[in-house]
């Protein structure tokens, strides 16, 4: 093996896994010890990756406090290291990690809050997309409409939680000034998170039928099947009005038969 490769692997182990691997024999002793010098890199790396995680999950951080967050982040970084020089992808597994993170088990809503923040992060950086071609859609013959499949906007996500995660998210925004109390017993929520053309991101609370319709379409079900599922979830809801509202606000960007 190349000596450079060996050195880099040893450095990584010393800094991130095992301080006692004897790597400091490669470091010139001058004033500060090799161990101390490696600590600088350990701190810098941990600080920058923790900072990146905090930037994606500010509400989770606010809910648990800096000290707890830093501890959780260090564990997360060890288990799910960054796999790219592009940090946009870092932090993907944080919600799942929190679900299994013993010190956080009492905060039952925390993983879902993290899911909401990850969705926000993805939407924030998602591609633009040209709007759906309404004129062409209108030409689809009525008897074929049931076979339509729709494509969700790249800057849209559907979320569901047994906890009031939107309320938790809202009262923990930096500029929030209202009543900060959250009633955890107020129940769950179904959400569409959507970035508009203006690049502003909006959360819309959905009813059961609406959520079911959007999820089915987003999963690639044909329009007729999605409608059946939606009406089963919420008999009698105004499906046509709901669907056209989402078409008009740009939740769907393309369709095919």
């Amino acid at each position: 093996m190349l000596r450079l490769r060996e050195l880099q692997l040893g450095f990584a182990t010393a800094v991130f896994d095992d301080e006692q691997n004897g790597f400091d024999r490669h470091i010139r002793a001058a004033g500060l010890s090799g161990v101390r010098r490696l600590q600088v890199y350990r701190n810098n790396s941990l600080l920058s990756l923790t900072g990146a995680l905090k930037a994606v999950y500010p509400v989770v951080c606010r809910l648990v406090g800096d000290e707890f967050f830093n501890y959780a982040a260090a564990q997360y970084i060890a288990r799910h290291p960054s796999r790219s020089g592009d940090l946009h992808e870092f932090g993907e597994f944080f919600a799942a990690f929190l679900e299994a993170f013993a010190p956080a088990t009492e905060l039952v809503y925390l993983p879902d809050v993290a899911r909401l923040e990850w969705a926000y992060h993805q939407i924030f950086h998602a591609a633009r997309h040209s709007p759906l071609d309404l004129a062409t859609l209108a030409q689809v013959p009525a008897q074929q409409q049931g076979e339509l499949h729709f494509q969700l906007h790249p800057a849209a996500r559907l979320l569901e939680s047994a906890f009031p995660i939107l309320r938790i998210w809202q009262v923990n925004q930096e500029d929030y000034t209202g009543d900060p109390t959250v009633d955890l017993t107020e129940g769950g929520i179904k959400l569409l998170a959507l970035r508009h053309e203006s690049l502003e991101i909006e959360f819309q609370v959905l009813e059961d039928g609406e959520f079911s319709l959007l999820c089915a379409l987003a999963e690639g079900r044909a329009f007729a099947t999605a409608c059946e599922q939606a009406l089963a979830a919420q008999p009698g809801f105004d499906l046509p009005a709901c669907f056209s509202r989402h078409i008009l606000q740009g939740a769907w960007v393309d369709f095919h038969l």
Binding site: F16, N44, S82, G85
Partner: peptide, 11 residues
Amino acid sequence: SVGGRHFNDLL
């Protein structure tokens, strides 16, 4: 980075 792990630092 080494071994696919990125440290977000200038090593």
